[in-house]
């Protein structure tokens, strides 16, 4: 054994920023997360050059997966041009040399905060969702250790009770985004704060979804072709946001999740939240050669 065999050449920064030991740990945990869909796997979660809560969990997964040929798309609230998306995209490109894109169809790896693109993802694509709070039970049990025991026991009674109480009090389930969902019939997970509109996109999808919470040091996964069922009562169906009839005032796109833009006269306009879809819709309308992929929702209905 020589010193040379124990060490490697000095480099100012490891490829993909994370060193080998951090990557190996994340790889091992991702494999287990894929093997037990929806189950939160604890991982060390190194500090990265970005503040906790700003996508450090998603970033560590992306840094582990990236190669100089991985085409990366980064979105925040559906938009590629959000400042935080721009910041993460720039960081990923600068530590990996990976090409970037805004086109969902061109991307190999999509890191996202709070949205799943409207165009269907393929079976060669990976979606990395940033997760602020990985624990779907937190609203009924803030103590992480007790909540973990509840998952171990598949003890989801309090979660159901909370949904039931909302229906009794408000006439409907009041959960906005982060709708708790049962994965593979066993583990309740948070799909991350994606809108209810996006949760059905995870059910029996073709792509792989990795959900990673850097601050809370947990990651979970939804492999392709995996059941993801929002918690609902038989007689109170799951309802996505009432956006099916809205039209984007900029692109004319209709039947997708929208941002509401308040107007000075007290009304609202809407614009499509998936910014790349908006861009493509405008380009197509202007006669440019643009390919819009098949979308999960057609005419505002999940197809």
């Amino acid at each position: 054994m020589t010193l040379q065999s124990l060490t490697k050449d000095w480099e100012p920064m490891a490829y993909g920023f994370l060193d080998g030991s951090a990557k190996r740990e994340i790889r091992r945990k991702m494999l287990k997360a894929i093997s037990v869909p929806g189950c939160q796997m604890p991982y060390a979660s190194r500090e990265v050059p970005m503040a906790r809560g700003w996508g450090t969990g998603g970033l560590q997964v992306s840094c582990t997966l990236v190669t100089p040929r991985t085409r990366i798309k980064v979105i925040d609230q559906g938009a590629d041009d959000s400042v935080n998306a721009a910041s993460i995209r720039k960081f990923l490109a600068s530590v990996s040399g990976a090409p970037v894109t805004t086109d969902t169809l061109q991307a190999d790896l999509i890191q996202s905060r709070h949205r799943i693109p409207e165009e269907r993802l393929r079976e060669d694509q990976v979606l990395v969702l940033q997760v602020p709070n990985p624990e779907p039970l937190r609203s009924v049990q803030p103590n992480m250790s007790i909540a973990r025991q509840m998952h171990a026991d598949a003890d989801y009674g309090r979660m159901w009770l909370q949904l039931y109480e909302q229906i009794v009090r408000s006439g409907r389930v009041m959960q906005g985004a982060s709708y708790p969902s049962l994965v593979n019939g066993r583990h309740v997970m948070t799909p991350s704060p994606i809108p209810r509109w996006d949760v059905p996109k995870l059910h029996m999808a073709r792509h792989l979804t990795l959900l990673s919470a850097g601050r809370e040091k947990r990651l979970h996964a939804v492999p392709p072709f995996t059941r993801v069922e929002p918690l609902v009562f038989d007689d109170v169906p799951y309802r996505v946001e009432d956006h099916a009839g809205l039209t984007c005032h900029r692109s004319g796109a209709r039947g997708f999740f929208m941002n509401e833009i308040p107007q000075a006269d007290g009304t609202s306009l809407h614009e499509v939240s998936d910014s790349d879809l908006g861009v493509k819709t405008i380009r197509a309308a202007e006669g440019e050669d643009t390919r819009i992929g098949a979308t999960w929702y057609v005419d505002g209905e999940m197809s």
Binding site: P12, M13, A14, Y15, T67, P68, S94, V95, G97
Partner: peptide, 8 residues
């Protein structure tokens, strides 16, 4: 920031 690192 240093130059883009290359993977070994």
């Amino acid at each position: 920031m240093p130059a883009v690192p290359q993977p070994s």
